[in-house]
Design a protein around this nucleic acid. Structure first.
Lengths: 185, 185
DNA sequence: GTCTATATTCCGATAGAC
DNA sequence: GTCTATCGGAATATAGAC
C-alpha cells in the first residue's frame, strides 16, 4: 500500500475513533511512522485529507453496490449492514455520522463531498427496499425513501450509542430491523 | 439567569452546534461577553463544564418526564420527540449524539454522566412503549427495549442527517415512526 | 518523498490585581 | 466575580536541506 493510501486509511480510522477535530497530523505521524511534514506533502491541508477519506468511502460504496447487485434484496441489505458491523467490531462509528456532528466546522468542499456520500447511501438503500417490496419479501407501508432513512438512521446511531449502552445492542437492533421488515405482522 | 447558568446554556449550544472539541472558552467569552478567565472561575476545567451540561439535560429530562407522566402514551412519545424538534429547529443535534462521537476524547467522569443520560432516555422511551402496547395503541413484536433503541436511534441520527439531506426529512421520519407504531399493518 | 526546524495561531489553564 | 497578563502546550502549516 502506498504512503498516500496508508495516510488515508489511518485518517479514516482516527476520524471515526476520535472525531475530525480531535485527530492531528501528529497522531497520523505516530501511527504511520513518518513525520508531520511528510504528510503535508501528500495532503497540504487537513481538508484535502478529509475529502480523500470521503472519496475512499464513496468508492468503497460503489464497489460494494456493484459486487452485490445480483443478490437478493435481503442479502443486499445485509451487505449494507456489514459496513456497520465492521465499524462496530473496532469501536468505530460511521463516517457520515462522525462528520455530520462536526459539519459546522468542516470546510465547504468537505461538506459537499459528504453530502454526495449521504445521498449515495440513501439511493442504494431505497433501491434495495423497493426491490424487496416488489418481490414481496419486505413489508412496509411508508415511502421507500423514508423507510430507507429510518433504517440508515438506526445503523448510524446504534454504532454511536453502543459506546454508551451495551455492545450486544448492535446485534439486537440489526435483527429487529430485519424481523420487522420481513414479517407482515 | 446567573452567569453560571448562561455559561452552561451557551456551552450546550456550542457542543451541539460544533462539537465538544471544536468549541473553546474563547467562543464562550465572545458569546457571553465576559473574559476567558472568568469562565474558568465558574468551571475550572472543560470537563467540569461538560458535566454541568450533561446534568442540565438529565434534569430537563426528569422534569419533562414528570410533567407528562399522566398523558397518553402517544402524547408522551410526542413529548420525547419534542426534544429533537426543538434541536432541529436551531440546526442543533442532540447532546447524546454529539458527545458519543467524541466519546473517546472526553474525560472519564463526563463519559460516566453521559452514560447515565443515555440510560435514562432509554428507560423512559421503553416505559412509554410498554404502556402503549398494554393499552393497545402501539403495535410492535420485538422487545420493548430494542424498539426503544430503534426509535431513539431514528431521532438521534435524523437531526445529524438533515444537515446533509433535506430539512423536511425530519417531519417525514417523525410521522413515519408514529404511523408504523400505531398501525397494526 | 522524507527530513529538521520553525512560524503562527489557538487552546486550556493559572497568577494576581481590582 | 471579573479583569489583565501570561504560561505551556498542541495544532496546522511552511521553508529548505537531503
Amino acid at each position: 500500500m502506498s504512503t498516500r493510501e496508508t495516510i488515508i486509511e489511518q485518517a479514516d480510522y482516527l476520524i471515526r475513533d476520535k472525531g475530525y477535530n480531535a485527530f492531528s497530523y501528529y497522531d497520523l505521524s505516530k501511527a504511520i511512522g513518518i513525520k508531520n511534514a511528510s504528510i503535508h506533502y501528500h495532503f497540504p491541508s487537513k481538508s484535502d485529507l478529509g475529502i480523500a477519506v470521503v472519496q475512499k468511502h464513496l468508492q468503497g460504496l460503489a464497489e460494494l453496490r456493484q459486487e452485490k447487485k445480483d443478490l437478493s434484496p435481503l442479502e443486499q441489505l445485509e451487505a449494507f449492514f456489514s459496513i456497520y458491523t465492521k465499524a462496530q467490531s473496532n469501536q468505530k462509528i460511521c463516517l457520515v455520522g462522525a462528520l455530520a456532528t462536526d459539519f459546522h466546522t468542516i470546510e465547504e468542499n468537505v461538506q459537499t463531498h459528504l453530502k454526495v456520500l449521504a445521498d449515495q447511501v440513501l439511493n442504494w438503500v431505497t433501491e434495495i427496499l423497493v426491490l424487496g417490496q416488489q418481490q414481496g419479501v419486505f413489508h412496509f407501508s411508508i415511502e421507500p425513501r423514508t423507510k430507507a432513512m429510518l433504517i440508515i438512521s438506526n445503523m448510524l446511531a446504534i454504532v454511536q450509542l453502543i459506546r454508551l449502552t451495551q455492545i450486544e445492542d448492535f446485534e439486537r437492533v440489526k435483527a429487529a430491523i430485519i424481523f420487522e421488515l420481513t414479517n407482515p405482522q
